[in-house]
């Protein structure tokens, strides 16, 4: 019993120490903004690597999730004779929840793990150390562009996911199952509010983007510079990002939509 309490205390202290180091690291990254002439090309390169190269997985996943939503929604709604509300169901589900959350989970698996592995390997092969010794701050040169790229890419990816999902739902609902196209789009237009739904979804994805990118770059920078250390850091990135996204989603949903 005492051992369990001691272990809990030790783990809590280790977590708090790690969180403190991560916060210090974040401040260091945010404080060291590079000059636009230097930072912009690095940022664009990372946006391509983190954002553009994630488009395929986001588009394909969005399409299938939209199609499944169309199918499931039609099955349930048709029992009540309200299958014309399928557009509303798909759009609200995607824009409010699935768009930001699933995109963030995909991002953590695809781009977050790659960021951690890349930075970890740079650390293990002393590339970060050599950069430091050349008078170049790796926080500015390597970490900051990757953090900002993740932060900026996520909302765009989430919007793309939701748009493709709506198209997937339309393909199934309208083209395959024969829901009237006018009511599909009309109900959607009438029920989806830009501020309450779209903007709140974007805010969620901004938060998720920031958290996922922070976790990914920190885990890479803080990893033990061995193959086992990099492997462990990559796993932690995916696990911590997923848990953080799901936990934060509950909190944000309660704040945004819980009219208690």
């Amino acid at each position: 019993m005492m051992d369990a309490i001691a272990r809990l205390g030790k783990n809590t202290l280790a977590f708090l120490a790690s969180f403190g180091r991560a916060s210090q690291f974040l401040l260091g990254v945010l404080a060291g903004v590079p000059k636009p002439s230097v930072g912009l090309p690095l940022l664009l390169k990372q946006i391509y690597s983190v954002g553009v190269l994630s488009l395929v997985i986001v588009v394909v996943s969005g399409l299938f999730i939209g199609m499944v939503l169309g199918l499931q929604g039609y099955t349930i709604l048709s029992d009540f004779g309200s299958e014309s509300a399928i557009g509303q169901l798909i759009a609200l589900t995607l824009v409010r929840e699935l768009g930001p959350v699933v995109t963030a989970l995909l991002f953590a698996g695809r781009a977050g793990s790659a960021l951690t592995a890349e930075i970890g390997l740079m650390k293990a092969t002393e590339q970060l150390s050599s950069m430091e010794m050349m008078g170049v701050d790796p926080l500015r040169r390597v970490i900051a562009p990757r953090l900002w790229a993740g932060f900026l890419s996520m909302p765009v990816l989430a919007l793309v996911f939701s748009m493709v999902g709506v198209l997937g739902g339309m393909l199934v609902g309208v083209e395959w199952l024969g829901v009237f196209e006018g009511s599909f789009w009309g109900n959607m237009q009438a029920s989806v509010d830009f501020r309450d739904d779209v903007l709140n979804g974007v805010i969620k994805s901004v938060v998720f983007g920031f958290v996922c990118a922070w976790i990914a770059v920190y885990q890479g920078y803080d990893c033990v510079p061995t193959s086992a250390g990099i492997s462990s850091a990559t796993t932690k990135t995916v696990v911590y990002s997923s848990l953080a996204v799901l936990g934060l989603d509950f909190i944000l949903t309660a704040v945004m939509f819980g009219n208690f």
């Binding site: 092969t125 590339q127 150390s129 050599s130 008078g135 701050d137």
Partner: peptide, 23 residues
Amino acid sequence: RRGALFQLRKKMGMLFQSGALFT
């Protein structure tokens, strides 16, 4: 301070054991 250290490092060169080239 961090900034001053990075300035001073411009006057230093270091050859790492592994080479530490950017891959």
